[in-house]
Amino acid sequence: MSTHESLAPADTATSGRIQQHRKYLMCRPEHFTVSYSINPWMEPTRPTDTAKALRQWQTLYDTYLALGHEVELIDPLEGLPDMVYTANGGFLIDGIAYGAKFRFAERVPEGPAFMEWFRANGYEVVEPAEVNEGEGDFLLVGDTILAGTGFRSTGDSHREVGEVFGREVVSLTLTDPRFYHLDTAIAVLDPVEGPSGVERATIAYLPAAFDERSQGILRERYPDAIQVSDADGAVFGLNSASDGRNVIISPRATGFEAQLRERGYTPVLVDLSELLLGGGGIKCCTLELRGVQR
């Protein structure tokens, strides 16, 4: 199925899924390469194709626009090849931007660059004291913040993000180094608000990416969640973006695609295979901007 074909509007009346308008921040991968390794996906000896990365990224950008969403852009900076993964640049709710403080030295300069963009675009910026990698490890589900730890963001950042936003924070521990950020192992499928009485699988997740305690929390809190297979998780199928009806996913996550259709979602297939060489996918390239600017 082509991306164009998959953009056909779903029958909301029969699917029960309601599309919500989204606003995203993205960064063109003009300097994309893999010159160091900070996750198991990155192999500097493997050639990368920047032009191909740009073409694939452009398809994702165009897809968001075709679906009616807004996309803002932050300028890519030379020497920061991972800036394309904007989800790691912060976490925003109600016009407040909690900045990122990266674990690895190679990405540390990204934090100030993103916070400068947030300030320039009217957001109230909270500079972090604790190590965190933004929406890579913080996911908003309803009024709750799911927070990941184990590889990048620290547990202390979970306390800090809760204090910044005054919301419940549920800590989850990642145990598989391939899934080093929470957004590689959980996809938030539904909007914050929806019609009462409509069955909603709020999230999809990969059980094997978490420790037993975290698996128990997810089963208890989200009994209707989609549990994704290891095969679909391993192709970054969960590193996806959803507007409540359309779910942009990797074309290789065929099992997840079928599960989404069964639940009334409309999968939209976008291939970011080149950017996966840096350990990132659709969600990694997509930071949600929540709150009114200016």
Rank of each mutant, 00 (worst) to 15 (best):
D75S: 06
D176L: 10
C284S: 11
A87I: 01
V141Q: 05
L269D: 01
V126M: 08
I248K: 03
F102I: 04
I203W: 10
N132G: 05
L269C: 02
A66S: 13
E130Q: 15
R213K: 15
E288T: 09
I282A: 06
A100C: 09
D49Q: 07
A13F: 15
G279N: 08
R261K: 14
H31T: 12
L65D: 04
M83R: 07
E72I: 11
Y222K: 07
R55K: 14
A241G: 10
P9I: 04
D49W: 11
R219V: 11
L276R: 06
S240G: 10
L206K: 00
M115H: 10
T14S: 15
L146C: 02
L189V: 01
I186D: 03
P40C: 04
T286I: 07
D190V: 10
T175G: 09
F210R: 04
F104I: 08
S37A: 14
I282N: 05
E199M: 14
V270Y: 07
A204D: 01
V198M: 13
T45G: 10
G155K: 12
S153Q: 05
D211H: 06
A97L: 07
L189P: 02
Y222L: 00
I18D: 06
I203C: 04
K52F: 03
R152W: 02
E163D: 13
I203S: 00
A10L: 11
D11P: 13
D271T: 06
A225I: 02
T175R: 13
H4V: 15
L276K: 12
V188F: 01
E130F: 03
A66N: 11
H181S: 05
A10W: 08
A10E: 14
E110Q: 10
N39D: 12
S242F: 07
A13V: 15
I93H: 00
Y24R: 06
A204F: 00
A225F: 03
E124C: 09
E110F: 08
L277Y: 03
P81H: 02
S15A: 15
T254V: 10
E135H: 05
I93K: 01
Y64M: 09
R28W: 13
A201D: 14
K23I: 09
A10V: 12
F165P: 05
V228W: 00
H4M: 12
Y180S: 06
R263G: 00
E257I: 13
A201Q: 13
M115Q: 15
Y98V: 01
D232R: 06
L238S: 03
T3K: 15
N132Y: 08
E212N: 14
T50L: 12
G136P: 02
A100S: 11
L206F: 12
V71I: 00
Y36H: 03
R219D: 15
D183R: 05
P112H: 10
D230M: 05
T266L: 05
Y265I: 02
F165A: 08
G122W: 13
L73T: 13
R252A: 15
G142H: 08
L80A: 09
E262V: 12
R219H: 10
A8I: 14
R261M: 07
T144P: 04
F32S: 01
P267N: 05
I145K: 01
G150V: 00
E220L: 10
P177Q: 10
E199I: 09
M1L: 15
M1C: 13
P223Q: 07
P177H: 09
D156I: 05
L260Q: 01
I203G: 06
A53E: 06
L67P: 08
G255A: 07
L238R: 03
D176Q: 10
